[in-house]
Structure formats: C-alpha cells, structure tokens
Write a protein that binds this DNA or RNA. Structure first.
Lengths: 125, 125
DNA sequence: TGGGGTACTCACTCATGGGTAAGTAGGTCT
DNA sequence: AGACCTACTTACCCATGAGTGAGTACCCCA
C-alpha cells in the first residue's frame, strides 16, 4: 500500500471519488462525523459496531491524507483526539446523499435488513 | 462468492448502494452504457481499456442479478449479446452524478491525471 | 486451409483488504 | 499494587478481488 495519497490516473470523476470512499467503513465514518460534528476515537468506534481499531485508524489516516477529515490532538494525559469533517468532507457527504437515497430505495425493493444495534453487537461478538 | 444477490444487512442506504457499485469497473460500465444506450460485449470491452474479459463478464452478471443491466441474447451464429441499463441502472447513474462532479473537482484540486486512450492502451500492454 | 471474430468458461496465480490479538505509555481509580 | 482508561502500533493470518492465459463452438473471409 502506498502511504502517499491515492491519486489516479482516473477514468472519470466517479472513479476519483470512489477511490476516496472505497473501504468498508469510510462512508460510515463520513456519515457518523457528519451527524455528530466532532467525535473522539472511542466514540467513533462505538458508533460503528463491528469495526476493528486497526481499520478505523487506517481509514481515518487515509481520509486525513485525502483532506476529508481533520484530526485534532490534545496533549493531555489520558490521550484525547478529536476528529471532524473538513470542508471537502462535508461536500463529499453532500454528494453522497442522492446515492444514499437510491440505496435506501433499493433496500426497500429487495427487503434487505438494516443492521440493528443488537445484531451489530452480536456480530461484534 | 455467493452466486445469490448481494444483500445486506446494511448500515444505511449508502452502504446498500456501495455494495452494488463496488468493483473496479462497475461505475465505468454504468457510465459507458448510459452514454451509448445499448452496447455489445466487445464494444464494452473496447470502451473500457484495461478490463479483462473475466472481470467484465463477472461484473455484468452481478449487475444483471442486481437488476441494473438488461442482457439481450440474439441466437445468431456469430453470437450477439446486447447490454443496456434498466430503469434502476438509469436512476443509479443519476444518483452517482453529484459524486462524479465531486470527483472531477477533486481531480482538479490534486492535479490527478486522467487516463488517456494512449495510456490505457499502454497499460493494457 | 487457416486466421479471425463472437461471447464466453475454466484453471491458476497473486496482491490486498480486512480481521485478530497482543503490546505500549502514562495517568487515575480501587 | 494492580486493573483500567486513552489512542494507538505491530505482527500475523486468511479470504476475496482481480489478472493471465488457455480453451470452446460456430461461422466468415481470404
């Protein structure tokens, strides 16, 4: 994996956007940060049932590199780190909205289950 | 791989939509079919420089299962199969439009290259 | 006669994405 | 003293996604 930013060449804009959103949890992180404004690492973790610490950190780092999230470290002694969306993160979220609606519609069509907190807790083991 | 349709449980609509669009070429296939209306297998293949036959077929089959593309087989003797978008495929494409714009904007910001036909041909070997 | 085009399938390989579990540092709670 | 909290890092493993190359059936054209 390149530690440098993801970056084309791309076929088109969708390609470029997908590159940034690809990853099992990224869209959820975006959603979570969008709805709560600012969240600490542990809060984010609790908000995404099933995510592993490794993946959460990896995704957050990549999204930081991509300029989607802002990471604010407070040098206190129980460590404290706050994550929030940047301007680009906010606009990406807005761009994802129609897709979210389409997906919701699709879930209705195929009758897919939504992950409930209980199910998620079970999945988490 | 389950041959049955992908299908949740999902956290939210975006999740459900991403499930259907995930795959290196799916969004490009959508784009290609949207812009040309109806395309034959070989034409699609030529339109997506770098795609392997295996992946193209696999993606087309999955998208057919998901109700995004329609597959019309003509029982002639040089085989002829035409692919086109279904109503759901069209609406998905529309839902992807804002994301495409965001991606295009991002490409401008980071100065990413766009795949040209020449580069693609080279990549294809 | 044989090369090419159509739309595939099949077998094999490899890279990567993601999961699991443990370790770390410094401080507070019991 | 020892358990626990924070936000991580590190090492290891495995399943899956994707690429390569060959094979197939049928026909057309040079």
């Amino acid at each position: 994996m390149a530690t440098s930013a993801r970056g084309g060449p791309y076929f088109c804009g969708i390609d470029a956007a997908m590159d940034v959103v690809a990853g099992k949890w990224k869209s959820l992180i975006l959603w979570e940060l969008h709805h709560h404004g600012t969240r600490r690492f542990a809060a984010l973790r609790r908000g995404l049932p099933g995510v592993s610490e490794k993946m959460l950190i990896q995704h957050l780092r990549e999204m930081e590199e991509d300029g989607l999230v802002h990471r604010e470290v407070y040098r206190e002694v129980p460590p404290k780190v706050e994550y929030s969306l940047t301007e680009h993160g906010v606009s990406l979220n807005a761009a994802l909205a129609p897709l979210g609606e389409w997906g919701t519609e699709r879930m209705r069509r195929i009758g897919a289950d939504k992950v409930s907190v209980d199910v998620a807790a079970t999945v988490r083991r």
